[in-house]
Simulated assay, not measured.
Amino acid sequence: MYVAVKGGEAAINNAHRLLADRRRGDRSLPSLTIEQIVEQLGLAVDRVMAEASLYDPALAALAVRQSRGDMIEAIFLLRAYRTTLPRFGASVPVDTAGMQVERRVSATYKDLPGGQLLGPTFDYTHRLLDPSLLEDLPVDEPARRPAPDEDIMRVSDILAHEGLIESDGEFPDDHEAGDITREPMEFPMPRDLRLQALARGDEGFLLALAYSTQRGFGRNHPFVGEIRIGEVELEMDVPEMGFSVSLGRIKVTECQMVNQFKGSAKAPPQFTRGYGLVFGQSERKAMSMSLVDRALRAEELGEDITAPAQDEEFVISHSDNVQATGFVEHLKLPHYVDFQAELALVRRMRAEIATRNNDGGMQEAAE
């Protein structure tokens, strides 16, 4: 034990130097800049911002660079930085109807008010490696669509006009949004806190749960009502001024998932909603979030809870990748005393069994 302690500090310092060396890589190649990561690895930056709950592309890019591209490590770094920031207040609710839309698609209506807008997407690309990207070749400038003069109607508004979908629901006027980063989680959770947890949950975990609901482990029969990606304006109320002021614009992805509902004693047959909203361009995450959100509304809608994606405590408690990483990776830290105790226990149990077997063999021999 003393030998390990004696060499520990020097070994850790050298491990840090080795990490910095591997992070830099071949010195004959130019070093990655933060601007390059923001502009050319934007989807990685968006994921780090979303799951760290901090919108700052430059800091997210720094975390990606520092972590050598390990997304969860980058998320951990950015969350740790987030805890050092002062909290001034909360923004007013964002109205995504006023989004400056870059991409907007619906699987429910072909012809939509405002039209379908494909935007930047992999949906129609061939999943083949492109050798031309090995060189820095010029890229054609895309056509620019003029911004619409008025807000683009949501698909849910079309259905609501006919009374075919549940309402958004309203909180009391005195309701204050909770904050899962400042208050301990308690179950059952109100939907606003649940959506917060899902928004910063691990994309892969939520994707797997969303897939499970479509394979029969839940009651989802979903349609993508609408996915929209674009910039929204953030505003904050300033009591001294008597009105809200703009803080700037951020890019978000919103998904409204439309689901069948046969009705209940309290509600007629209608469509129900699953909702997802995340920082940046993260539509796989927003879709997964909306599917899981709908699954977690099972009790509210009077449905049987039969699947993992419908179990609030299971989903929320295991969706946080930073927390999950801590529990899994702590296993590689020293557990010498614990292991020696279990090792002694196993040896004693084996010795007791061997003694009983020997005693039994001697008794049989005597008979």
Results as ranks from 00 to 15, higher is better:
255 C>P: 01
255 C>G: 07
258 V>T: 03
258 V>M: 12
262 K>M: 11
262 K>R: 11
262 K>E: 14
264 S>W: 08
264 S>A: 08
266 K>A: 14
267 A>H: 06
268 P>M: 11
269 P>T: 08
269 P>I: 06
273 R>Y: 13
273 R>T: 10
273 R>N: 04
273 R>A: 06
274 G>A: 11
275 Y>M: 12
275 Y>A: 07
277 L>V: 14
278 V>T: 13
279 F>K: 04
283 E>C: 00
287 M>L: 15
288 S>H: 08
290 S>D: 02
293 D>H: 05
295 A>E: 10
296 L>G: 10
300 E>Q: 13
300 E>Y: 02
301 L>S: 09
301 L>C: 04
306 T>D: 03
311 D>R: 12
311 D>K: 08
312 E>Q: 15
316 I>C: 13
316 I>V: 15
316 I>H: 05
316 I>A: 11
317 S>N: 10
317 S>F: 06
318 H>Q: 01
318 H>T: 04
318 H>K: 02
319 S>L: 01
320 D>M: 11
321 N>E: 15
323 Q>G: 06
323 Q>R: 15
325 T>S: 14
326 G>A: 12
331 L>E: 10
332 K>D: 13
333 L>H: 09
334 P>T: 08
334 P>N: 06
336 Y>G: 11
337 V>C: 01
339 F>E: 07
340 Q>V: 10
340 Q>H: 05
341 A>C: 03
343 L>I: 03
346 V>S: 10
348 R>Q: 13
349 M>V: 15
349 M>N: 10
350 R>P: 00
352 E>H: 04
